[in-house]
């Protein structure tokens, strides 16, 4: 059971690196939605007898992160006619190195944390930490509004991975995480609405600089 679980989390961590290294927006969205699908499958593998709450979380994640949000993002990309090249503040190679270094640091750090025996041999905690870090790098290091949304989503995926530790004991907290998807929804609606109002030409967040000291 743990072997399958770790394989999937390892895959999700690999997708982090893909997201950091790619220079094309569609590829970033693909990596993100693949990660969403993987996260949706993981709760089923956790070895608990499948009650309806766990099934619901898995289904909501699969549909939300794997299908709905990526397709919304693609739609935003089309309506806003956004240039598909990503325009990094932190270059692709430095972000890859940061992400990989972060993943290694997470793996090294986790044995220092007190974990319950059933979690000690899984990649859940290091996977969560590495994914959260990836999200941060994308949030800070990419300039396009849509790629920042992708970064936020990957940050959220990391939090969800961590939440899986608690899915049996405190399902409410994990379910609450679905609300974060709602935030993402608001982000994307913001992009689409703004595009309709034609307030900006490129949606380059570097141009959001009218407000400063």
């Amino acid at each position: 059971m743990n072997a399958n679980l770790n394989l999937l989390i390892g895959l999700a961590m690999g997708l982090n690196l893909l997201a950091l290294g790619t220079s094309r927006l569609p590829a970033l969205i693909r990596a993100m939605s693949a990660q969403g699908v993987i996260l949706g499958v993981i709760p089923v593998l956790l070895g608990h007898d499948l009650d309806w709450r766990v099934a619901l979380i898995a289904l909501a994640t699969l549909a939300g992160k794997g299908v709905v949000i990526p397709s919304l993002l693609r739609r935003a990309m089309r309506t806003a006619q956004i240039d598909r090249e990503l325009d990094p503040l932190i270059g692709f190679v430095p972000s890859l190195l940061l992400g990989a270094g972060g993943a290694i640091a997470a793996l090294a750090l986790v044995p220092l944390l007190p974990l319950l025996p059933e979690h000690a041999n899984t990649l859940l905690v290091p996977g969560a930490l590495a994914t959260v870090l990836t999200g941060f790098i994308l949030l800070i290091g990419r300039t396009k509004a849509i790629s920042q949304v992708c970064g936020y989503l990957i940050l959220e995926n990391g939090i969800y991975l961590f939440g899986l530790l608690l899915i049996k004991a405190m399902p409410l907290l994990v379910e609450a995480g679905v609300l974060l998807d709602l935030t993402v929804g608001v982000f994307i609606i913001g992009i689409i609405v703004d595009r309709i109002q034609r307030a900006f030409d490129s949606l380059d967040t570097r141009k959001l600089t009218a407000l400063r000291e």
Binding site: L139, Y152, G163, L165, L180, F200, L208
Partner: peptide, 26 residues
């Protein structure tokens, strides 16, 4: 446009904050 810029920053910073507080709650 200025209101949009303010809203975007509010959502991005506030959203990240709220995500971190969920991680903290977990």
């Amino acid at each position: 446009p200025r209101a949009f810029e303010a809203t975007w920053k509010y959502l991005l910073v506030g959203g990240t904050g709220i995500a971190l507080s969920l991680l903290g709650s977990l």
